[in-house]
């Protein structure tokens, strides 16, 4: 899933300081699962903003709505009526959702309430970790199911580098060295010989370096 975290409330408040009425839109997708932009978080944020603004003697009226997904125009369309009389829309979705909302309501001031961090999953309730680097050319079959693109802080394909010690990365004692994990896993699998192959330079054109990407499935395009 996409993991996102809320921006500091002050930052969000500043974005709508000149508004009298705002619509806060949550998303029932990834950000609900990672507890940053679901229905509950949307309501908490709206309450906090209202209180803050009352104390500043500049009351704010809020409306809340949680879309099934903000990355799908049909679910955003459900709030067409709600947006009419608001001065701004605060989206509690990932960066994708914010853009879909902004695109649909092109005459509205649409602002992000979250910082979209990474794609990953939770290790325990309340802790999420990055797992995929979105490089567009998966190498997990070569690395024992552990992504070196994003879990190695240097994206090294022929690791581990000289900064790996006691299983940890040089950047922090709290960060596992992805290559130490890869080594252990390949050892368990009896496939250490695979690590002796020199992995060639990566073709980053399938990653963000190739410009904005698009995925197409001809057989399901309607029309």
């Amino acid at each position: 899933m996409i993991v996102a975290q809320q921006k500091p409330l002050q930052e969000i408040a500043d974005m709508v300081s000149d508004c009298k009425k705002v619509l806060l839109v949550g998303c029932a997708g990834c950000v609900t699962v990672c507890l940053s932009g679901g229905e509950k978080e949307t309501e908490v944020m709206s309450s906090a903003l209202r209180i803050k603004r009352r104390l500043e003697e500049n009351p704010l009226t809020t409306v809340t709505f949680t879309a099934t997904r903000q990355c799908d125009p049909e679910y955003i369309a459900e709030m067409d009526e709600m947006v009419k009389d608001v001065d701004a829309i605060i989206s509690l979705a990932c960066g994708v959702g914010v853009q879909y909302v902004a695109e649909r309501y092109s005459d509205k001031w649409v602002v992000p309430a979250l910082n979209t961090n990474f794609i990953g999953g939770s290790t325990v309730h309340g802790i999420w970790e990055e797992k995929c680097g979105l490089c567009g050319d998966c190498v997990l079959h070569k690395t024992g199911g552990i992504c070196p693109i994003i879990r190695c802080s240097k994206s090294i394909l022929n690791g581990p580098c000289g900064g790996s010690q006691y299983g940890k990365c040089e950047i922090s004692k709290d960060t596992d060295c992805a290559w130490a994990l890869i080594y252990e896993r390949m050892k368990t699998l009896g496939k250490l010989n695979k690590l002796m192959e020199i992995q060639p330079p990566k073709d980053w054109s399938t990653s963000r370096d190739g410009g904005p990407r698009r995925a197409t499935r001809e057989d399901v395009i309607i029309g």
């Binding site: 009425k21 209180i51 009352r54 104390l55 003697e57 009351p59 009226t61 809020t62 409306v63 809340t64």
Partner: peptide, 15 residues
Amino acid sequence: SPLNKSGAKKKEGDA
């Protein structure tokens, strides 16, 4: 509570 002080009194329209 500061919310109960005159200026910050709840006004109508708080949905």
